[in-house]
Nucleic acid binder design. Structure first.
Lengths: 338, 338
DNA sequence: TTGAAAGCGCTAACAT
DNA sequence: ATGTTAGCGCTTTCAA
């Protein structure tokens, strides 16, 4: 293993000079810089992470806590996670992968061991057990998601309430007056995950404002569950002409079942999804949708975390990304309206 | 920040005693052990990761390199990754998340910086550019996947060739004589990813042995692509009575299209999938399938890596997990056969 | 512009 | 069964 000392000897300079060449924290003459850099290359030197962390109390590692669940749509989580990893590398940081099942204890562990310089947390619940620890922690944390009390915390999330409102507006503009919402699995609401509740609030709020009827039903992702939910909806609200789906696993079954039951999309009923972009684009009828901007959320979270670690910290705030509704082939004017 | 020295002072013992209490590497009297442990708790001590890594040249971190692609089915990758993370924690290790786009350079970086004690690599190609570095590395590596030359490497994978063979056998046993294979996207084969090629080899080999006709077509996951592939298959081989699908994204479209074209599953055609268990179970017709044992693969990889790090190393070998075919509702005897 | 030297907090011989 | 002590490889004052 090549050490700083060996590089220093090889380049004929002191250890500190090598260190400063590497960190750029003090001016170095062009001549020595080149000599050192060439020694680094020829010896294949890589600084020892442990030693560096110990001496500088910086690990250049960001801990990322990902959900470990089966009732959430994984591709979005995965996309956020890989976006975080990629963005972190671009800033010279590595990612330590923590799973949500470790709970608040993981926060303590990371904080205590100085394993990471900052934490990024996903799958934030409205009243998340990790929040008190994060507020008290000496190292910065960024949430991807929005708890009910974001005070003193750095948050990045899609503005799901606005997303819900946008869906209702789009449908109202097309003449729809009765909307049914096929939601996430009931467990997601019970857990009081922020995004699902907020979307619903946005949907309901705008529906009330515009005088639309809105029926919401949680729904599992299986084909059978969607079939059951759909038939209940049709029974209760035969006048329904539009659906909002917030459940990636349910979109394909929903389209298939509508088709099967003789309801053409978008001629007879319209469908708007709040979902992963690929799911919307690849569906059997390409779906008008509000996408979750996973990559941007990951990137923003990392940028904030890095800024905080490196002392360019902004005030804690909730950054809510504006939703963007993309019109595809699944929405049209109501039959009555044409 | 609480240090070892503070714990030692608080407990009235030397630093080394505290260290040994924590590591269990030498006998400690019950009395001092208890005193130390109580001090640890009351002070809220957590060993500093950097210092420990520096002194012991062990980071208790395993680096996991995950694919960063869009043409692979992510849930399986995600499931493996979370299984790896969970298993690692159970052994006292943390996971450092590396993305595949860093390529061989990441191997050098981790090796050089001693950031991780071992590496686990996913998405292994038949002739993977990272292999030479891994063979030369001083730290152990475990591949999840199987390159063409696994010599000197520790590998864990599903026996995809056996999986392919099992599919053919099952169908042959039901009287099918003409099988069509709907495969992964063409890019997956071009990249020479091991698993896709090996499944195909297993399918072809057993089909040849049993005298069945077998047609293979790569296929993108979109609805349109599956439709095109299906119609080509039907044109070329009108006698096809069974499909093998190895492409999670294509299964649902395939079932929908078969239904639409008046072919009932399993009455008219049988379908066997090599895919994620959930995809098979949740499909509109629950699919007879060979599942990728993602959790077990992750667990086995971690166990091997930990054993190697801790000096209980076995010889390098390729561990191929036996496939298990689960019969569900998508396969039946051929119409001609009943 | 560079060097010397004192730690960072821990582990692991080497003592006793 | 426990204490003493010498590093691990780096960063960063303090000096020159």
């Amino acid at each position: 293993m090549v050490t700083l000392a060996e590089v220093a000897r090889h380049a004929g300079v002191s250890a500190s000079t090598v260190s400063y060449v590497l960190s750029g924290k003090r001016p170095i003459s062009a001549a020595t810089r080149e000599r050192v850099e060439s020694s680094v290359r020829t010896l294949g030197y890589h600084p020892n992470a442990g030693a560096r962390a110990l001496a500088s109390s910086r690990s250049n590692i960001i801990a990322l806590m990902v959900p470990l669940r089966t009732d959430m749509y994984l591709p979005v989580m995965t996309e956020i996670a890989t976006a975080v990893a990629t963005a972190a590398r671009a800033h010279g940081y590595d990612i330590l992968l923590l799973t949500g099942d470790e709970g608040p204890e993981a926060v303590r562990r990371i904080e205590g061991s100085a394993l990471a310089d900052a934490m990024i947390l996903m799958d934030v619940e409205l009243d998340d057990g990790r929040l008190p620890l994060l507020r008290a922690a000496t190292r910065p944390a960024v949430l991807i998601g929005l708890p009910s009390d974001p005070d003193g915390l750095h948050c990045v999330d899609l503005d799901f309430a606005a997303a819900g409102a946008a869906c209702v507006e789009h449908l109202a503009g097309l003449g729809h007056r009765e909307i049914a919402v096929v939601g996430e699995a009931a467990a997601v609401y019970e857990r009081r995950t922020g995004f699902a509740e907020r979307t619903l609030a946005g949907l309901r709020g705008r529906a009330a404002e515009l005088g639309l009827r809105l029926l919401h039903r949680p729904c599992e992702g299986s084909y059978a569950a969607v079939a059951a939910t759909l038939s209940r909806i049709v029974d209760e609200r035969p006048g329904t002409t539009a659906f909002v789906v917030q459940n990636e696993a349910a979109t394909d079954p929903l389209l298939a079942l509508l088709r099967q039951s003789g309801r053409a999309v978008p001629e007879d009923v319209s469908v708007v999804a709040v979902c992963h972009e690929q799911v919307a684009a690849r569906a059997s009828v390409p779906l008008t949708s509000v996408a979750v901007p996973a990559r941007e959320m990951g990137r923003r979270a990392v940028e904030r975390a890095v800024a905080l670690v490196e002392g360019r910290g902004a005030d804690p705030e909730a950054v809510l990304l504006a939703p963007q509704l993309t019109v595809r082939a699944s929405t049209a004017r109501t039959p009555a309206d044409t």
